[in-house]
Write a protein that binds this DNA or RNA. Structure first.
Length: 634
RNA sequence: GCCACCGUAGCUCAGAUGGCAGAGCACCUCACUCGUAAUGAGGAUGUCGGCGGUUCGACCCCGCCCGGUGGCUCCA
């Protein structure tokens, strides 16, 4: 038989029964001490797997994405062994590899604490130094259930029972055996660089009605340098945290006195927000949307009619006015539907697209609040499109275009996710199917990659979400396109078709940025606070050198603000280097230095945020330059 | 809401074992009038998150509450 290393010529091997490691050595693969596993005809296997027929082999190194995943998964097993050694009676549950590392969920008599981590790490190092082999075995599931049951590992028993497979695979290193599909490293000694990072609570099987387990997170990399680089990255990401920059750049604050999840926008933040809202209104008007405005309070009766009262009540705030119950809107759709319903609509009028920068309130549970990204009051760039069923797909696709164009302007990449019918929902099976199909087809015809989230849709319809990432690479839902046949039905919305009969329109709920607050949070991290000129709340700052230059600086300031440029002045009696430093820290794009030279020549010297100096120019030239750059949205 | 951790000056943070609360920056005053990332000197600044308890005495120990951070669940 013959084996060949991927990308090189076949090597004859004399006998069968070589394992992956030996086969790789025979075919002279290099860097053997960094091999995590082996690909046999493209399939990832343990190095101990026997190669019993001719095959193409490819070594998987610990610094490749797949190799790293194996390494991290093996690290999770090592951690579980360490925890079991140190805390007898701990039940193990699951422990997968994740981005940058791994976790394992445990059930112990008390939750684990940060203080337990050094001890666990120490034990892990010992296990790694023992270089224990990971040994795979396959046993009938009934046998495995017996073994785990006798050890009191009730969670493992539950997992195996659900697997409903005849044979299941186990991995053992030293005294620790775990239910696992594998593959794993050949031995614990291959784990070169790891660190336990934090503990957290996590529900068994992600269900808040079940046991709260104790999760320990760790990071692991192929070598210490990579681990150090990762930790350094984390430090850098912290500097981009929108909550930190929000304070430093004086954009916003969240005060205990106001209540959690409520944001105050300071002048700089309010300006940034205003620029984005103004931009959005223009972009919507361009695309055939009409403006609409609805009230904050709507009668509870109306929320009962829409289904929000039954399906969304725990997220809503209610109040009473003269014995009438009112709900504060958590969504903007009802007012828009009432606008639609205010007169008879013809098929010739459709689609109707109502746009509102709609402020909503939602009762978010205290534990989920997060800076600007998860708040209790926020403003959506919300629109509702009422259209004929035939127009639905074209409308969805034009929204996908809209999202693409806007995200390109801000320089965002995004991932699409489609969410289907949740348990708690309204509407008929047929409508759900129709709506879900419309969304999937729209995305597929665009050849866009997407992921399906079963059961994650809104209660009235399925949705497409666009996810943006923050500084720590956490994904946040921003744009969403939701297809809805149920609410038009509940509100008896109709249009008169060409046949003269009444028909039911479809409704699309959609946002492009999502919530202005969340988008700003992600945007601040995206630009690390150094906004492009068109977004910068303060575009220019005038820095005088001596008090003699103040009148000239004052005139310049008037000229610039008269031309619509956002300008600030720093006329304090401080050294220029000090003023430059402060402007630099505030990430102001244009610093205008005015001293005696400029005063005499009637021009300005420009220092850019990146440290470059521009040749002296007249105020008129500066205005043109700034306008030009702003228009290009750079 | 659940689990762990945290809360000291406007900000960032130090305060062994319980015994008169500190630094840097910011702020105010004065001097300096200065050319591209921090001029010098002086000054003021606290219910030590809140309430209760233990103690001769609590920033420190205990309980409850409020708020934040990281996760889980939920979600724009």
């Amino acid at each position: 038989m013959a084996i060949n290393l991927k990308g090189s010529s076949p090597v004859d091997i004399p006998a069968q029964g070589l394992n992956g490691l030996e086969a790789l050595k025979t075919s002279s693969a290099d860097n053997m001490d960094k091999v995590a596993a082996i690909k046999v005809n493209g399939e990832i296997k343990d190095l101990s797997t026997e190669i019993n027929s001719s095959a193409e082999l490819e070594p998987l190194y610990t610094d490749s994405p797949e190799g790293l995943q194996i390494l991290r998964h093996s690290a999770a097993h090592v951690m579980a062994q360490a925890v079991r050694d140190l805390f007898p009676g701990t039940k193990v549950t699951i422990g997968p590899a994740i981005k940058n590392g791994f976790y394992y969920d445990f059930d112990y008599e008390r939750p684990f604490e940060a203080g337990d981590l050094p001890e666990i790490e120490k034990r892990m190092v010992e296990i790694i130094e023992e270089d224990l082999p990971f040994i795979r075995s396959e046993v009938p599931s009934s046998e495995a259930i017996e073994v785990f049951r006798s050890q009191g590992e009730s969670y493992k028993v539950e997992l195996i029972e659900e697997l409903s497979e005849q044979k299941i695979s186990l991995y053992r290193q030293g005294n620790f055996t775990d239910l696992c599909r594998g593959p794993h490293l050949p031995s614990t000694g291959k784990i070169k660089a790891f660190q336990l990072t934090h503990v957290a609570g996590a529900y068994w099987r992600g269900d808040e009605h079940r046991a709260m387990l104790s999760r320990i997170y760790g990071v692991a990399f192929a070598d210490q340098e990579s681990l150090n680089a990762h930790l350094k990255n984390l430090e850098e990401a912290k500097k981009r945290d929108h909550r930190v920059l929000g304070r430093k750049l004086d954009l916003f604050s969240i005060s205990d006195d106001l209540g959690p999840g409520m944001v105050i926008f300071h002048p700089n933040g309010a300006m940034l927000r205003h620029i984005i809202e103004e931009f959005e209104i223009q972009e919507h008007l361009k695309r055939g949307y009409e403006l609409a405005v609805g009230p904050q309070l709507l009668k509870a009766e109306l929320w009962k009619k829409s289904g929000h009262f039954d399906h969304y009540r725990e997220n809503m705030y209610f109040t009473a006015i003269e014995d009438q119950s009112y709900g504060i809107k958590p969504m903007n759709c009802l007012a828009h539907m009432l606008i639609y319903a205010s007169k008879v609509r013809s098929y010739r009028d459709l689609p109707k697209r109502y746009f509102e920068l709609g402020t909503v309130h939602r009762h978010e549970r205290s534990g989920v609040l997060h800076g600007l990204i998860r708040v209790r009051q926020f403003t959506q760039d919300d629109a509702h499109i009422l259209c004929t069923p035939e127009q639905l797909k074209a409308e969805i696709q034009s929204i996908l275009d809209f999202v693409r164009e806007i995200m390109a302007i801000f320089g965002f990449d995004y991932d699409l996710e489609i969410s289907t019918r949740p348990k708690k929902s309204i509407g008929t099976d047929e409508d759900w199917e129709k709506a879900t199909k419309a969304l999937i087809e729209s995305v597929e015809e665009y050849n866009l990659p997407y992921q399906i989230n079963e059961g994650e849709g809104a209660f009235y319809g399925p949705k497409i979400d666009a996810m943006l990432k923050d500084a720590l690479e956490r994904s946040w839902q921003c744009a969403t396109i939701q297809c809805d046949f149920a609410l038009p039905d509940r509100f008896d919305l109709t249009y008169v078709g060409s046949d003269g009969e009444k028909h039911r329109p479809a409704m699309i709920h959609r946002v492009i940025l999502g919530s202005i607050e969340r988008f700003l949070g992600v945007l601040i991290e995206h630009y690390a606070g150094a906004f492009p000129l068109w977004l910068a709340p303060v575009q220019t700052i005038i820095l005088t050198i001596t008090d003699r230059n103040i009148p000239f600086g004052g005139d310049l300031s008037k000229t610039l603000s008269g031309a619509g440029i956002r300008v600030k002045t720093d006329f304090r009696n401080e050294k220029l280097s000090f003023k430059v430093r402060e402007a630099q820290v505030k990430k102001i794009p244009y610093m205008l230095v005015v001293g005696d030279k400029e005063m005499e020549a009637g021009n300005v010297t420009v220092r850019l945020r990146d440290g470059r100096n521009l040749p002296p120019m007249s105020p008129g030239e500066l205005i043109d330059r700034i306008r030009d750059e702003s228009e290009k949205r750079r």
